[in-house]
Amino acid sequence: MTTATQFGYADLPRLLARLGGDEKHDRTALSTLDVLWVLYDRVLAVRPDRLDDPERDRFLLSKGHSPKAYYAVLAAKGFLRPEQLDGWTGFASALGGHPDRTLIPAAEIASGSLGHGLPLGVGTALGLRAQHRRGPRVVVLVGDGELDEGSNHEAIALAGRLGLDRLTVVVVDNSSATHGWPGGIATRFVVEDWATRTVPGHDHDALHEALTSEHPGRPLAVVATTEPARRSA
């Protein structure tokens, strides 16, 4: 077994810098950073040396259009070598502007076009259930703007009706949906019989508690609220 170098949360700015990202100027891209850190640091049962373990938890980054935080956390946790961050989006780089699972073994899905991760996550949960694998969790990260895509609502309805209790959706809510979600995002899940939690998106303990809360017989939606994205004119 090889043990890759592990970094801490304090190392993330340095890793992000290799991707040309810094917190001051890249707020949208980094809205997911704390959620990703808590997931990989404290929640997901997945290891760099066991990526083909059928009992591993699955993390599906659906909001694939801002992958810097994802790549930085993967590097910090030994799923990527830090030097892979250099020259990202170059022609020969494994790290693109959107992640590709066939180029990065740690990425469960290739994403970029919005609204694909949650249906794939429902299928993944159904595939595991059909194989009687009750252990693995399936965690999908989406954005609040991404929820505009109708395919999500096909998946939210079915997951609720089928009671897919190994499925968790994290909605990073930076108020970027064009027409907003009056009444709050969580209500869209509540009516489909999901368990829901809404927590501050940068509070590690609150995220951890929400992501590990019990939700027997029902899927779980965790809405992680962050600062509003700057709206383009």
Binding site: P54, P119, L120, G121, T124, A125, L126, Q131, E154
Partner: peptide, 16 residues
């Protein structure tokens, strides 16, 4: 729900 039809098929295939 035909988008979900194909997405679910893809997800199931991802699990083998």
């Amino acid at each position: 729900r035909e988008q979900l039809l194909v997405g679910v098929a893809g997800g199931m295939a991802l699990t083998g």
